[in-house]
């Protein structure tokens, strides 16, 4: 399986639950404005976070054996796959256009940092399990920090 395929599969894997969850949430009170609005709003937040998790997995574990170019392609596929959710959320009035742009810029910024971290670990004088553990550990730490301070960066984005 190529890196872009990995990216698509990863993207599908994490997009599908978000879509299902958003629709299920809305279905609870589907015809109610607040139900759809809140579902879409939360879906976008969850989407950003799952994008970060997916990227972390892509660049640290799954794709670590691929060349950097394939790795970047896979990451792009994973990043871009849920893009249609974002204009849908905007049309539903759940988030503003500016918040969507800010959110994607932040996710891309995190993506860049993760790639740098993975490649930085490669240049450390460590090998084998220690290098793999360091890579995964750095990614997990990044994800944990993003989760811990999610309200902060959601605030930066404007949601």
């Amino acid at each position: 399986m190529t890196a872009p395929q990995h990216g698509v599969w990863m993207g599908l894997l994490y997009t599908a639950p978000v879509v299902v969850w958003a629709f299920a949430q809305g279905a609870l009170e589907w015809q109610h404005l607040a139900g759809v609005h809140m579902a879409m709003h939360t879906a976008v937040k969850v989407l950003w976070f799952t994008q970060i998790i997916a990227l972390s997995l892509l660049v640290s574990g799954v794709l670590v054996s691929y060349p950097l170019r394939d790795q970047a392609t896979g990451a792009l596929a994973a990043l871009w796959l849920p893009l249609p959710i974002l204009p849908l959320a905007w049309l539903a009035g759940a988030v503003s256009g500016a918040a969507l742009v800010h959110g994607q810029l932040l996710v891309w910024g995190v993506c860049l940092l993760l790639l740098l971290a993975v490649n930085g670990v490669r240049h450390l004088p460590i090998t084998g399990r220690l290098r793999a553990l360091s890579t995964v550990g750095a990614q997990l730490l990044g994800v944990a920090v993003m989760w811990r301070y999610r309200e902060v960066w959601w605030g930066w984005i404007g949601v």
């Binding site: 392609t73 792009l76 871009w80 893009l83």
Partner: peptide
């Protein structure tokens, strides 16, 4: 790869 990468933005524009 370019086809795979082109589909999401194309779908987003279609929305």
């Amino acid at each position: 790869a370019w086809v795979v990468l082109l589909l999401p933005p194309a779908a987003s524009l279609a929305v």
